[in-house]
């Protein structure tokens, strides 16, 4: 049998201590991704550190920031009155993910850390640079309908599958990370990485670090917002393309706007150029269409995912339309 050590701890400090710098150790949160990967032989940690009893589940507002613990469940966050009132975009994005049963155990930290759903990554008989660097990318000339159109590399064209993270990048979240020496803060946009030459790395979490939680600044985006997820069935499917859209309108002009996409890149994809374009303009269909066009600069497809070049801008427009009609 592939044996592993199972350790359970009740404090972040001891969890970090147990982790040490051990590359073969892994935190176990909801287990909805990690256990699957272990069953498929994609990963085989020698040490599993169960962090479910670490008290990092709080969701609260301190000053003008909303704090969410890394071990709060996806359901707890989505259903929390504070989140529903102040960050409804995040709530909607979470609800669009997975199934109710999965969301009940999946955690914020685990969601950020979930691996790609690329089929080649999961099948250990197939080539995959992310699973086994140097073996080649099975998807590049294979089945790549679900794959990236932005920021791709020669080595890997996988997408990050999370819905939650699309909302978080749009909301300017910050990630609190800790190691034995202390805590550091990382802007959410810098948490996930592009594949580049190191497709095996999904993010910038260091080997000795733990995700402690998130801080999200309050905003005025709770009125005009929408999370639109386009998928192959109405629920319980990963995004072909998803868009988080939110804006604030004062005197008919957009004063603040956030746009991010999922299902299109190795990381949640913030549409900065489109945001800059929309700021100060009217929330009109023409402007939405132009913003969508701007977002598509440098997009590149690989055959199976050619349709995303059309679907992505369309979804941006539709999400903005729906956000506008919320008023």
């Amino acid at each position: 049998m592939i044996n592993f050590q199972y350790l359970r701890t009740t404090t972040a400090k001891s969890a970090i201590a147990l982790l040490g710098k051990d590359k073969n150790a892994k935190f176990l949160a909801g287990g909805t991704n990690l256990i699957d990967l272990m069953k498929r032989g994609v990963t085989a940690p020698e040490k599993l550190i169960d962090i479910n009893h670490v008290p990092l589940k709080q969701i609260r507002q301190i000053g003008n920031k909303i704090h969410i613990g890394a071990l709060a469940s996806n359901t707890a966050v989505a259903d929390h009155p504070l989140i529903k009132e102040k960050l409804p975009l995040l709530s909607r994005a979470l609800q669009a993910g997975a199934s109710a049963q999965l969301r009940n155990v999946a955690t914020v930290g685990g969601n950020m850390m979930q691996r790609t759903r690329c089929g080649y990554f999961y099948d250990i008989e197939m080539p995959c640079n992310k699973r086994q660097p140097g073996t080649g990318c099975g998807a590049m000339e294979g089945f790549n309908r679900m794959h990236a159109i932005f920021g791709t590399s020669e080595k890997c064209i996988a997408v990050h599958p999370s819905d939650m993270c699309v909302a978080l990048i749009a909301l300017d979240a910050e990630v609190i990370l800790a190691n034995a020496k202390g805590e550091r803060k990382l802007s959410f946009k810098d948490f996930h990485r592009l594949a580049g030459d190191t497709p095996q790395l999904d993010n910038n979490l260091k080997a000795d670090e733990m995700i402690i939680g998130l801080e999200i600044p309050t905003n005025n985006l709770a009125k005009n917002y929408h999370y639109l997820k386009v998928r192959d069935r109405a629920s319980y499917a990963f995004a072909l393309v998803s868009v988080a859209a939110a804006f604030e309108i004062v005197n008919n002009k957009i004063t603040d706007v956030r746009l991010a996409m999922g299902g299109v890149a190795h990381k949640p994809w913030r549409l900065t150029a489109s945001e800059i374009f929309l700021k100060g303009k009217e929330a009109s269909l023409t402007n939405f269409e132009q913003a969508a066009q701007l977002a598509m600069k440098d997009a590149k497809s690989f055959g199976g995912n050619d349709f995303k070049l059309k679907l992505a801008p369309n979804t941006i427009i539709e999400a903005l339309n729906l956000a506008k009609s919320k008023a």
Partner: peptide
């Protein structure tokens, strides 16, 4: 490629 219930889509209630 899609030999699992996440990727082989049988309709769900919402469909």
């Amino acid at each position: 490629i899609n030999n699992n219930f996440a990727d082989y889509h049988v309709p769900v209630n919402a469909d």
